[in-house]
Design a protein around this nucleic acid. Structure first.
Lengths: 241, 241
DNA sequence: TTCGTTTGTATAGAACAATAGACAAATAAA
DNA sequence: TTTATTTGTCTATTGTTCTATACAAACGAA
């Protein structure tokens, strides 16, 4: 616990508890130690610890019952596979009951330098941008921004809005299969807009995956920047020959 | 900017500036806007903004000169490749002038459940644990904890301490080549010990890679949990067929 | 019921964060 | 040299966070 670091003690403790629950080192039996025990373990006042618990209750990680104790509401981390055939829906099929993706917004715009380079287009070429939110079992998992060549895929947004599936969108344009070429993974604090969409509290961490998908001919068809909730998802990379 | 969120405004601003510098959207010319301009942009008092800058100066990201302005000290993010042949030294060779790894501590202990499973050993089997720190161009890049089968690799720590290389350590035991089997990537706030080793300030984010390396016969030889400084490194995953 | 345990609420003081205004010190340009 | 610009220091005030103590309310077991 670091004091006067710009991060309140209660928030540092909330982060540690959330992480320990994910790692299974705390509340593995579904029940948290008492407030007294935890406040002693962290070396803080009971009220400070209560602030941490309150934040986690707000997030839906814990549930507190007067007179009984504090309980773990959701534990398991999802493992999102990254491979040549990465798909949102199939990747989480066995770990979740229900998955869905929602189109938040779409636009046609001129490609920025990063997007143009990733898609192999001329700078300022027209591209379709999709803002999407993916949920699993009713809880937000990731928030993505995707770009597509507007000349090759006119009306992609419309089709995606109806089907909720990138794969089906591509099929409409005669692309039966596509592959993940490369993925850059970084991490940062969620920005204000993502905090709201992903229903997180300030200071939450997102894993950022910047990915390029290609068709069977090796031509880039999609560039996407996906922000995963770091507390709910880990990325699984398989590099076996 | 979120107030009373448990994260001080100056720290939120420091995080944003650090990130904007990494993305090239701020200080691309090596020079930061004035304190007045920045405090207006973020909608805070100049003193609050100064706290953010002071933190970044402390981290070595910025350099402030009285009467002249504030300047960017280090910008470029390192791109750490994750593939079947992941090696620390070779992976960063073209992006850095100088790289080194330091052995901080080592021990022989009984394998925990996660380690035993990863290495394919019996629970409580004896394993060697290495605590290492990797630097590039004099700045800490990652902090790793590695485990090896103590029966197969007796004295591995000693050899690593002398050579600073995992690859050379394996060669000593007749392993000419080894491969990355799988990598699990997650992100979290750095814990207190890592903050000190990696010379970070509180609230810093680390990318956590949990990796299994195998020999040419497919037998696991190393399990490692590496914490990368998220502001200085991104992971590059290539999944092309 | 009675008792011990546990979470919930209230109040007050000390430490830290954020705002405000004023001025000093260094730099660069007129 | 003079002036404008920019970072550095100081003091004061207000709001948030943390600590300390006390007691209420709900639960479960004796």
């Amino acid at each position: 616990m670091t004091r006067k670091s710009g991060v309140a003690l209660w928030r540092q403790i909330a982060d540690q508890i959330r992480q320990a629950i994910g790692a299974g080192t705390l509340g593995a039996d579904g029940r948290l130690p008492t407030e007294m025990a935890l406040s002693e373990r962290f070396g803080v006042n009971r009220h400070t610890l209560r602030s941490a618990i309150a934040a986690l209750v707000q997030e839906g990680v814990l549930r507190a019952e007067q007179g009984r104790g504090t309980f773990v509401e959701s534990r398991q981390k999802l493992s999102y596979p990254i491979s040549a055939r990465t798909r949102f829906s199939t990747g989480l099929r066995e770990q979740t009951r229900e998955r869905r993706s929602i189109l938040l917004a779409d636009a046609v715009e001129a490609a920025g330098s990063r997007v143009a380079e990733a898609l192999g287009l001329a700078p300022e070429a027209p591209v379709i941008r999709l803002e999407t939110l993916s949920e699993a079992d009713g809880r937000p998992v990731s928030r993505a921004t995707s770009w597509f060549d507007a000349e090759r895929f006119p009306g992609f947004a419309q089709i995606y809005a109806e089907t909720g599936s990138i794969t089906l969108g591509f099929q409409h344009f005669g692309i039966e299969d596509y592959f993940r070429k490369s993925t850059l993974v970084s991490a940062r604090h969620a920005d204000t807009a993502d905090l709201a969409d992903l229903r997180l509290s300030a200071g939450a961490i997102v894993l950022v995956a910047r990915a390029i998908n290609i068709d069977t001919a090796g031509v880039p068809v999609q560039y996407a920047e996906t922000r995963f909730v770091a507390d709910r998802v880990e990325l699984s990379v398989s590099t076996e020959a």
